[in-house]
Design a protein around this nucleic acid. Structure first.
Lengths: 196, 196
DNA sequence: CCTTGACTATACAGGTCTGTATACTTGACT
DNA sequence: AGTCAAGTATACAGACCTGTATAGTCAAGG
């Protein structure tokens, strides 16, 4: 479904990517230098550049890596609810609750990355990646809803997307606790409500 | 209602704050240096530091400035709908539509700033400011809903907050067009639906 | 045996970052 | 007349940034 498969990594490259993922997510992309990443990974800067080519490319790999982990978790939750229906939509929110509990204290890495790149996102390789991730999820919602015989899957998917994005941001902003529970509740109401 | 009033600014300080607001918002905070800001404002770096003390303080001023502008616009929309009721909640979304059309192409400055500060937000003066902004809006929703005799203003305010945050992020991510229209629609349904 | 890929270690180039120091100008108010 | 706030102009310190260069180690595979 149009997701990039990252090339197999050498052991040192793995450590670089893991270190970069943690540091970029927790401190922000611009705030973390390549020396810091190399040191945290127990690797020389030369190795980092030999494997990834540039910091920008490493940032893209970081975003792909985190998204791949999220999709893996999501798959687990979706295969547990195989029959088409509203419960499959709710499974996305259940996965998001689990994900944000363990890996999401600062919100969505794609949204956070967006904040750090200019709005002239021409030629910047980060924007296509994060745009792709968001469209992928919107499309997933649409498919699940179509399979569930929703009367207007495209519109309902936009609504689900809004709830999802609102919740993940609220996690990062700490506006109030457990926003995904609220989002899940709203989704359930929308999906089980009689047609108005 | 616990909002900071920024001290009167000298002409040069005004230009610095205006330039900083545009540059920080469009390119990100870490991506913009003080030299760039000073040059854009037609001011020497010394003046910038004489007026604001540090880049960090200028960032806080930027966030307060943008929030003050948003609250001004919001006030205009709210005074247009003086009678308590659901329409006052919808007025917030109407204001947000207008705001994001003109000043919000990259989403919410507070959310974007959050992405650039570490999660160890102890002592960092930016986090309290953006947390205050979000709580302020949550409280505003709560008050409007209480005045509208909502049966559970606190819960409904959390829902409105989710729709608002989801929409503003979706604007910045360009996942799909006009998300605030979707959010406003969902809010209207929630507020006018018969009790379930 | 010997080449090749993966890696370490170290140094450095060239740029940008925040913040400060020094010296001067200008206009307003007392 | 004199003081003071606000500003310009310029230089610089010291740190940090991305990226490259040079030299060497080590293990696996043909």
């Amino acid at each position: 479904m149009n997701v990039p498969v990252l090339a197999p990594l050498t052991p040192a490259a793995r450590r670089v990517l893991d270190a970069a993922s943690e540091l970029f997510y927790e401190r922000g992309i611009h705030a973390v230098g390549v020396d810091t990443i190399a040191e945290a990974a127990g690797v020389t800067k030369k190795t980092l550049y030999d494997r990834f080519g540039s910091k920008e490319a490493l940032v893209v790999a970081y975003l792909q890596h985190r998204d791949a982990q999220w999709r893996d978790l999501l798959d687990k939750y979706l295969t547990r609810v195989p029959e088409p229906g509203p419960d499959r939509v709710l499974a996305v929110f259940d996965a998001a609750i689990s994900w944000s509990d363990e890996n999401g204290a600062k919100g969505c890495s794609a949204i956070n990355a967006r904040a750090e790149i200019g709005d002239g996102h021409d030629g910047h390789p980060v924007f296509p990646e994060i745009a792709r991730q968001k469209v992928w999820l919107l499309d997933l919602f649409t498919e699940i809803l179509r399979d569930a015989n929703d009367v207007d899957p495209a519109t309902m998917a936009k609504r689900m997307m809004l709830l999802y994005e609102g919740a993940i941001v609220t996690v990062g902003m700490e506006t109030y606790p457990h926003p995904f529970d609220v989002a899940r509740d709203m989704a359930r109401s929308l999906l089980t409500a009689p047609a108005r």
